[in-house]
Simulated assay, not measured.
Amino acid sequence: MYWNTNEAMKVMEEVNRQVPASMNATVLQDAEYAIGGQTQQNLDLQNMRQKILRVRQPLC
């Protein structure tokens, strides 16, 4: 697997959904956590870019 591919980003999106769900209703439910790595960084940048583009769209 190449770690900077769309496939890898889809895996990280799933990890980002599953981690908080698996911590819920456990002693870790209020714990802070971080997910790192090159693919996660790329996914974070992609998500920030999408948010910026939504904010910058002109109002009609």
Rank of each mutant, 00 (worst) to 15 (best):
M1E: 07
Y2I: 07
Y2D: 14
W3S: 03
W3E: 02
W3R: 00
W3P: 03
N4D: 14
N4P: 02
N4Y: 00
T5S: 15
T5H: 00
T5W: 00
T5K: 00
T5A: 02
N6P: 10
N6I: 02
N6K: 04
N6C: 00
E7K: 03
E7I: 08
A8R: 01
A8D: 02
A8H: 01
M9E: 08
M9L: 02
M9I: 01
K10F: 00
V11C: 05
V11T: 08
V11E: 06
V11N: 05
V11S: 01
M12Q: 03
M12F: 05
M12G: 01
M12P: 05
M12V: 13
E13T: 13
E13C: 13
E14F: 05
E14M: 09
E14Y: 08
N16T: 02
N16E: 07
N16V: 00
R17H: 12
R17W: 07
R17C: 07
R17M: 10
R17T: 11
R17V: 07
Q18M: 14
Q18K: 13
P20I: 08
P20C: 11
P20F: 13
A21W: 11
A21E: 14
A21H: 10
A21K: 15
A21N: 07
A21G: 01
S22R: 06
S22Y: 08
S22I: 10
S22H: 04
S22P: 02
S22E: 03
M23K: 05
N24P: 00
A25E: 15
A25G: 10
A25W: 10
A25S: 13
T26P: 15
T26N: 10
T26S: 15
V27I: 15
V27H: 12
V27M: 15
L28D: 13
L28Y: 14
L28G: 07
D30Y: 12
D30S: 12
D30W: 07
A31W: 11
A31I: 07
E32G: 15
E32L: 14
E32D: 15
Y33G: 12
Y33E: 07
Y33W: 14
A34M: 12
A34D: 12
A34P: 07
I35D: 08
I35Q: 02
G36I: 12
G37F: 04
G37A: 03
G37T: 08
Q38R: 13
Q38W: 10
Q38T: 15
Q38D: 12
T39K: 05
T39G: 06
Q40E: 11
Q40A: 09
Q40C: 09
Q40Y: 03
Q41C: 14
Q41T: 15
D44Y: 08
D44L: 15
D44C: 13
D44V: 11
L45W: 09
L45F: 11
Q46N: 12
N47T: 12
M48P: 03
R49C: 01
R49N: 09
Q50C: 02
Q50K: 13
K51A: 11
I52S: 01
L53C: 01
L53K: 08
L53V: 03
R54G: 01
R54K: 06
R54E: 11
R56L: 14
R56M: 14
Q57W: 00
Q57M: 05
P58V: 04
P58A: 07
P58D: 03
P58W: 01
C60H: 01
C60K: 02
C60G: 04
